[in-house]
């Protein structure tokens, strides 16, 4: 077996309608680049990125799913193992926003109860094509008690922040997951004031 080069492993999942930019968000985060020429994701894709959070090396195993209905049997089987789920919509596509409720139901049905969730309104660089006001995103997130950010994979707005926040939220409720960890390194959930809070500032 290869030597363990990390302290914790977090499994994240990206879901949302087809074409909202899930693959681009992941690519921006993992490779710090933007590419509009992605072919559509069929089934499920996968990336690894190691981050450091509060002195811990955290390996993020991120699953990128296909958005179309047909792939749901394949993709929903990953919900169970996910510790964090990012639900992405496209601020220039009203339908992708309307479907948030449907995606949330999917999470309820297939994911662990304590999974950390986050809603992302992507493509926030395309202000002239916006059809979903930021307040609408904030409001639906607040309603469900979920974190929310507007992002742009293209303009690199809030992408890293989104992953870090989600990872942090998972870290907060992961005390002593690794047996080799010092117990005094365990972070208490109540230490973070921002937890459970919803809307955060995004591109203005």
């Amino acid at each position: 077996m290869a030597k363990k080069t990390y302290d914790l492993l977090f499994k994240l999942l990206l879901i949302g309608d087809s074409g909202v930019g899930k693959t681009c968000i992941l690519f921006r985060f993992s490779d710090d680049a933007f590419n509009t020429t992605f072919i559509s994701t069929i089934g499920i894709d996968f990336k690894i990125k190691t981050i450091e959070l509060r002195g811990k090396k955290i390996k993020l195993q991120i699953w990128d799913t296909a958005g179309q209905e047909r792939f749901h049997t394949i993709t929903t089987s990953y919900y169970r193992g996910a510790m964090g789920i990012m639900l992405v919509y496209d601020i220039t596509n009203g339908k992708s926003f309307d479907n948030i409720a449907k995606w949330l139901r999917n999470i309820d049905e297939h994911a662990n109860e304590d999974v950390e969730k986050m809603i992302l309104g992507n493509k926030c660089d395309m202000e002239d094509k916006r059809v979903i006001a930021k307040e609408k995103g904030e409001s639906i997130a607040r309603e469900h008690g979920i974190r929310f950010l507007e992002t742009s994979a293209k303009a690199n707005i809030n992408i890293e922040q989104a992953f870090l926040e989600l990872a942090e939220a998972i870290l907060n409720k992961t005390p002593g997951r690794d047996p080799q960890e010092n117990p005094d390194n365990v972070v208490r959930p109540d230490k973070r004031s921002r937890d459970g809070g919803a809307a955060r500032q995004c591109c203005a």
Partner: peptide, 12 residues
Amino acid sequence: QIDKDVRRLCPD
């Protein structure tokens, strides 16, 4: 849906 996909067909 078709439109989204054909616009990203064989981008290489």
